[in-house]
Design a protein around this nucleic acid. Sequence first.
DNA 1: GTTATAATACTTGTATACAAGTATACTAGA
DNA 2: TCTAGTATACTTGTATACAAGTATTATAAC
Lengths: 243, 243
Amino acid sequence: MTELNEFLYPSKWLSKASAGDRVTYELRMRIISGQIESGTILSENKLAIDFAVSRSPIREALKILASENMIRLERMGAVVIGLSEKEIEEIYDVRLLIESFVFERLVRIDTNELIKELSKILEMMKVAIKYSDADEFSYQDVLFHETIIRAVNHSYILMIWNNLKPVMESFILLSMRVRIKEKVEDFTRIINNHELYIEAIRTKDRDLMSKSLHENFDDVQGKVEDLWISQQMLSKGVVQQND
Amino acid sequence: MTELNEFLYPSKWLSKASAGDRVTYELRMRIISGQIESGTILSENKLAIDFAVSRSPIREALKILASENMIRLERMGAVVIGLSEKEIEEIYDVRLLIESFVFERLVRIDTNELIKELSKILEMMKVAIKYSDADEFSYQDVLFHETIIRAVNHSYILMIWNNLKPVMESFILLSMRVRIKEKVEDFTRIINNHELYIEAIRTKDRDLMSKSLHENFDDVQGKVEDLWISQQMLSKGVVQQND
DNA sequence: GTTATAATACTTGTATACAAGTATACTAGA
DNA sequence: TCTAGTATACTTGTATACAAGTATTATAAC
């Protein structure tokens, strides 16, 4: 595994992170991108060598990734699961589930502050598109949904989000990086959809919210296939040289 | 913290567990029972001495408990959060949420095998009551719900369950141990409720399922207060001697 | 008594060492 | 050629060591 150590996860998002976190984020990206193929057996020692750290941070990373369903810890080695079409659908099931729950809480509280915050994030997203900054766009996209979820102050719903977020973030990152090059029109659709979402919260309109949530889902869903092909190509290019 | 090392978590459930797991399960029980009060700051070193293990398994435990919202990892020490009334409600929110989701999937598939399995578990629960075995009853109760959730084969719903389960299990354990002594009538109500649940799955009756789910919730909800008092007394008795 | 500085005792994160167990490969015997 | 047993190279889990940083305490100066 002597690849050019080109990191997939934005390094500036890890400025204050520990070695354990770095490994976690990077390993997750490599698994989701397909750079590390599903079925691969990871060894703590090999990973320690690859990342040039000791086993301690590696173990930490593996434990986290296991709790996120990215790998399965077995007696000998960690088996990579990754994200197939099925898992991506499942992740969106859960997102739909928790965001619907959150919406039901939102209709009962004052959402002025929240809407202001969301509008700000939306503007940020637009700027990110303007400068073709896929990473920044992804960051704001994830933040958008996190902001909504945090607004209801529910620690166990937040717990679910915290478990789901890293995987979603990685997936969105990879997805947006591919799309920003050739499918810019996708982004205006995503923006429109988020505007709908804000509108749904403002008017406390369940149907509108449901519509925007599902469209958001369909947007990703329909595109997964093409995306995967590009993504696989993109990642394979890095390893290919001696494997 | 020189308490009589009386473990709260059933030791026979940890027969093949690592030191890290033992610490995790025991620490969780002590936090939920109130033996370790919310707000307490835990130190890795002190815990290592208390449990007579090194920091490695302690760190592992703290990471897991943090992901379960039982503690909050800060720069200096881990702050205990624990379960207040609010958190317990939230946990049941999530259980309602995921079990409702699961039910929607169940109505679309063949549930004969599942129902047979659930009936078996229910019989086990009855036997447990007959012999006043609160631990065994709790085990089967948790297993009952896990079996339902596993039936739909949804890895990300299962992920949520896996995160929630240990906390629920601990809570149920403590709750049942108190109740089995003086409130045996509660158990027949729980059994009836589970029978309703099975019936709802068999007849694919959404309303019945909703009814049984909510009653299950109310059962716990109403009783939390009295329960807490007993529980606190129970746990305080252990520490009190020199603190 | 109050403040500034220095010493000390803690904290986390990482590296390394070791023990016990498990898979793999290899050798000896038929 | 096949099998039995042994050696070897892995594996995980735990203990320990160390570095860098942070809080606390004590001491000294005013």
